[in-house]
Each structure stands twice: as structure tokens, then as C-alpha cells.
Design a protein around this nucleic acid. Sequence first.
DNA 1: TTTATAATTTGAACAGTGTTCATTATATTT
DNA 2: AAATATAATGAACACTGTTCAAATTATAAA
Lengths: 199, 199
Amino acid sequence: MKNKALQEQRIRGYFIEATKEILKSEGLKSVSVRNIAEKAGYSFATLYNYFKDAKDLVFLCVQDFQEECSAHVVTRSAKAARGGKKLRAILLAYLEYFVQYPGIFELFFMEKLSELNKQPETASMITGFPDRLCEEEWKYLIANKTVSAAAAANKRAALLYGLSGLLLLYINRQMPAGYPAFLKAANTFIDSQLKEMNT
Amino acid sequence: MKNKALQEQRIRGYFIEATKEILKSEGLKSVSVRNIAEKAGYSFATLYNYFKDAKDLVFLCVQDFQEECSAHVVTRSAKAARGGKKLRAILLAYLEYFVQYPGIFELFFMEKLSELNKQPETASMITGFPDRLCEEEWKYLIANKTVSAAAAANKRAALLYGLSGLLLLYINRQMPAGYPAFLKAANTFIDSQLKEMNT
DNA sequence: TTTATAATTTGAACAGTGTTCATTATATTT
DNA sequence: AAATATAATGAACACTGTTCAAATTATAAA
């Protein structure tokens, strides 16, 4: 009787798809149990038969969004020459994605994880994400002796912190003011972190 | 008849004090109109006679918290020698304050500003805050030719972004895991940004 | 001091949340 | 077809924010 599992998984999918739609269009503020259920075609009470929480449901979208973001980054950085150039292109595309979908940034970095859920998993999945996007390129740079493994580790951390903060300030506090100024700040910051490499 | 203005200001103060208490103890999640009003000794409806919103009220606490944080930073960095050392002490004390009061970090950097309020004022008051803490020290370093004005501007921006991101990830995503690891990451990051200065 | 007027405080009421649970409806098995 | 198991649902409760007319209090006038 594996039909049951299949049908159950399908229904879960309807709820997840509904949540993703709301997140991308109206943002996290519009995500409510009754809202999701209506878009999924079920009663709000049904949601609780398949998920513990609406927060639970929301964090199940993280993986899908990461894949979407990865695809965007790959496309946007495809033409860049390998090495520092490509790294820059990847990071800029990463920023671009979250500027386009501020609700997803909110979900990734600002929404509180439901306690005791699978906090560590989801949290590290999120915090490790930008780093994974760059992994191949760092390996390449280290292999080419452009940068030492130790220096690379420091730069990776600095980029993770800096870009997270940059997005936080731009999305939440309009600083810098306007997208061109943001782009300039991002370029300046990335360059300052990537310098002193034998590009 | 300036008694009226005085009394009005006092009542506003009661509400603000109540809000501050809640923010520091239970955090932003426990801030509600009825909650604040009860602590202030008034009905929830009275709040609307003195403030447009509970959000309005919350952002009036920002200035008080900044002063408290400033005082903490001054105390903690008093013994450090001027220059790079002092700058480091200031930034570490800044981080320390927000780690101690995550609710205040949430308020400063994550809470949405009520639209059309005094968004630009409050936003720049917040984003400029860490920079103001360091202002004197950067001036000193520039005057001593330890660093050029241009390089200083870049480093200031990088530190603002990086430390914001570091706090965001640590407070919201437990990354790095544990306070010691956080402190180490903070030190490494600050050092990497302050290096290449003739300290 | 008593009365009339102005100002302030307040709770009822409404529309939203999330969540639980007994009831209803559907599907499955006998 | 009847009995049983499974799934879907809306009522109900406790919270949110917010408005507004009524009640209370303070002030001014008689």
C-alpha cells in the first residue's frame, strides 16, 4: 500500500508550493496558516495533519529556493573567466538574487527557526550556502597557488559575514540608498577582500 | 499652561520605559500593545492617545539603547591604547552588547521600520551608529598617518558590513556555534580588516 | 460650591492571527 | 451493504492590533 505514501507526499507538495508562491510574491508577512491552506485548496486545519507548524512548512521551502538561487548564480557567472573574476561574478549574482526576492533573504537569515525542530540542519544548510556556491572556485585558486588554503579560509569567512551584513543593511535599512550605490558598495567590498591574490 | 506638555511627556515616558523593559527582558516577540500598557499602568487604548503605533513606540527606544551601548563601549575600551588596539576594543565591546541583548539587535537591524514614519532618520541613525563609535579613533589613525583617509573609509564600510553579518549569523543561526568560537571569528575578522596599518 | 464644558481614559467590539479537537465526510475492509 | 479506519473540516479559544463611543476626570464658569 504505497499509494498512501505517494498521495500524502503529493498533498504535502501542494502546501509547499502554495507557501513558495506566497513567499515570492507577497513575502513572509503574508504567510499564514489560513492563507497557505486556501491557496493549496484545503482547510487550514488540514495543514496540521501534514505539518507541525506553518514555520515548519516555510523552512521546507529553503532547499527549493537554494536550488533556484544556485541556478541563477551558475547562469550569471557562466561567462566569467575562472579565478577571481568568476568568484566575483558568483557573489554578485548571489546578492542579485536576494535583492530580487527580499522575502527569501528574510526567510534565510532573519526568520527564527522553530525551536527543537531541525535547527542545526537548517541553520547550517543556510549559513553554508554562499560558501558552497564558491567552493569550486576557491579550490581552483588554491590549486593554482593564487592563494593559500589558510588565507582562503579567512577570506571566505569575511565574505560570508560582509555580504550577509550588506544585504541586511540594504534590504532592511536602505543603506546604501539605491541599487547603484549598493552595487558599488558590494564591488568595493568584494574587491577589498579578494585583493592580494595573484590574479 | 505648560503643565500639560510636561504631564504628557511624563506619560509618554512611562510607555517608553515599559517598552524598554520588555525589549531587554523578553524581547521583541513579547512587545504588544496590551503588554506595554499594563506595565505602564494604563489601558491599551490609552497608548493610542500618545503614540500612533506600538512600532513607533519601539523605535523611540533606539536612541536610549544607543546611549546605553555607547556607555558600555566607552567603559570596556577605556584601558586600551589609542589606535588599532582601541579600535578593536571598541568593536568587540559593540559586539558584546548585542550578544548580551539579542532583542536590541533584532530591533536595530531586523525589525521593519513603520513605513513613511521617520524611516530615513531612524535608519541612518542605526546604520551610522557603529561608525560613530569609532569615529574619534579613525580620525586619530588618519592624523597619525597610520592609514590614509581613503583606505580608512573602505575599512570602516567593511567592518560595518562584516560585524552586522557576524551578529546576524551568530544570533539568528548559531554560527559560529558557541560564544568562544564567535569571539574567535570576530577577532580574526577584525584583525584581517585592520591589518596593513602601521600599528 | 455647584454647574457646565472640555479633555482624557477606557472597555466593548471587530477583524485578524495560531492552534486544538470533536464532528463530519470519505475511503477501505470485511 | 455494513462496519471500520482514515482524512478533512469548522467551531471554539486565546491571542494579536485598532477604532470609537461611552464613562470618567479635570478645568472653567456661574
